[in-house]
Structure formats: structure tokens, C-alpha cells
Amino acid sequence: MNRRRLLTLLGLPLLGGAGYAGYASLRNPYYNGPVSDHFDGLRFHIPNITSDKSTGDLLKWQFDRNRQKWPERAPSAGQDKPPARVDGADLRVSYVGHASLLIQTHGVNILVDPVWSQRASPFRFAGPKRVNDPGIALTDLPPIDVVLISHNHYDHLDLATLSALSGNPRTRFLTPLGNDVIMRGHDSAIRAEAFDWDARVEVGRGVFVHFEPSYHWSARGLFDRRMALWSAFVIETPSGNIYHIADTGFADGAIFQQARDKHNGFRLAILPIGAYEPRWFMRDHHIDPDEAVRIFQICGAERALAHHWGTFQLTDEAIDEPPQRLTAALQREGIAASLFQTKRPGEVLELAVV
């Protein structure tokens, strides 16, 4: 059996080739730009941090794993039907599922990492399958002004969904460097715009999107590791900023303090809490609930919302372990559960101006 077939059967499409450090490509198919502190002319990297896993690490995890059983279906109670707009300073965040969210404030509709497909995989027949339906039906979405795509892993960049959203000529697709080529290569109607870390992009009505670093990586296959950039986002609004981290490790925690210093804290932080076991393999790229609470404290957010759990089984923890561990971590730190909430697909976080 060849390596590609083996990795597919092991479920590796969910991580876009994670763990395969034996890449040999000498050409970047997505991006050709100047060398910087996080781009060496071929691959992107996190300054002063090396976290690639070897093929041996990957196979050790796959053959020794203690994978908890998930239910085939874990449906939510209902679906959200969001309003056309949320004007003014009120903030409405609808949890679609996994890493997909609809953010509405100041009359701007922002969709983050939209995945409506049944699998987080390049294949229709294999790879992680969703256990609950998207919290908003695609046909119930309001007019989308901006789609933010954080990086190119299959549980975040879903080309079929992006094509479905591209019918509105006013929708902008904003993504880190290199991912625009992947999107347009699939469908030229996806009007993707690519930006580097530290970019600030105006999206209308006094709202801006900042591209910020995270401790993560990228790949769509076996030989393109770190050839497209990944990022967190800060959504700057007239009534406070939103810090959205798609995927990240914790590392030294420096970037979270830097985000606080740069943006003077946050009205809301949207932080991942799932896909973290086993820690020896995942800690460099995915935080666990305890680390999510630490980031909440470090970045100076008033409130937090959890995501990246409960829809696709990407790693080994049980489906309900992330929110349980989050509750325990908040209790240990003396933080009220209302300040860092979890939602099921179709549920909504609303923050009104007091």
C-alpha cells in the first residue's frame, strides 16, 4: 500500500497531510514573494519556533492512539435564522459548527471559515464526517459582506462551500497569502484577496480586519506543507475589537500578549477548545481548554466564545470532553462560566451595549 493511500485510510485528510515532514518540493505553487521574518522564499514559518512532526511521529500516533468513540449523530436542538443585519454596536455571533461562525455587528456580516460539506476531507468517501448539521442552513444566511478563511486545512477551507457563497458579487473573500490561489484554482468566481500578517483591511462601516499570527501551519496534501500562510484575525469595530483564533498552539504565549498590547484588549475572544489529544502530538498546533483559558486571561478579553469542537472528530478526545474541561478550568481560575461560553450549532451569543 502506498503512503498516500495509507494516510487517507488513517484519516489524515482531516489534517491536510499533518505530520508528514518528509516533503521534497522545491517550488511553491501558491505564493512567490519576498523573503521575510516568517517566509524563507519557499515556506512560511513561525519565527524562532520549529514544530513540524515527522512521519514516524504521525505513524506512532495513528497506531498507538486511544481514540474515544463519538456518536454517529449528535444533532443540536435547532437552527438559527439570523437577521439580515445587526446595526449599531450590538454584537451577534451565531455558531454554525466546528470553526464556522457568523459575526454580525455595525451592519456588517462576516462569515468565518465556512464549512457546510459533510466531510472535512478532500474526498467524499473518506475522512471526518460531521455529526451535526450546520447551525444555519445555507439558504438562511443573510447577505455576506466578508468571508474570512484562516488557513487551508480541510476543516477550515471548504472549496465547495466557498463556491456556493461566491454567487454574490459583493462578497469579499479575505485570506492569508497563498490561499487565494487554491480558491481561484478551484473556482474563478471566488474573489479571493490575500494578505500577510499585520495587514489591516477596511471592510466598511468603520470595520477593519487585521491579520495576526498564530502558532499553526498549513497543507492541503503531502508535499505543500507551510507553503500557504495561516492567521488569526482581529475584527476592529467602533465599539470594540473581536479576537478570533482559528487554530493555534500555546508555545510561549507571546503572541497573545502582543495582540493585547497592539489592540488594547478585546470585547470578545473566539478561541478553539477542541482537537487536542494526544498532547504530545497536538500541543504545538492545537490548544486544549486549559490553554484557552490562559489565552483568555492573557489577551485581556471581556468575554470569550469557544469553537472548534463537537462537529468533526479530528483527534482522540471524547465529543463532550472539551466543554467539560473548559468548565473545570474556569472554576479553577475563579472565572464565571458566563464569561467564556460554549454553544451548540444553531445557538447564538448576543452582546448588547449597556
Rank of each mutant, 00 (worst) to 15 (best):
N66M: 08
L305V: 01
V35M: 15
N168K: 05
R92I: 11
R170L: 04
I242F: 02
S25Q: 03
R73W: 11
L351M: 14
D320E: 13
L148Y: 00
R27Q: 15
R73A: 07
P128K: 06
I298S: 02
S36E: 05
R191S: 10
A337M: 00
T175S: 02
Q257R: 06
I103M: 07
H45R: 11
R205E: 14
P238S: 15
L26R: 10
R124I: 09
S121V: 05
F173I: 05
A77H: 07
P272V: 03
L10S: 03
L271G: 03
E350D: 07
R332A: 13
F312H: 08
W61L: 13
R226D: 15
T105H: 01
P34L: 12
H38E: 08
E236D: 09
G97W: 07
L349W: 02
R85S: 13
L9Q: 14
R85I: 14
I182M: 09
I190R: 00
P128T: 02
W217F: 15
F281R: 01
A219W: 01
D37W: 11
T8L: 02
A21F: 03
D57Q: 14
D133S: 00
S163K: 13
R85C: 11
L10H: 04
I46Y: 13
D316T: 08
A318E: 08
A89S: 10
S36K: 14
T171Q: 05
L326R: 01
P122D: 04
R294G: 01
L7W: 10
Y95V: 02
R67N: 14
A84R: 12
H244C: 10
P169M: 11
D90C: 06
G346V: 03
T50K: 15
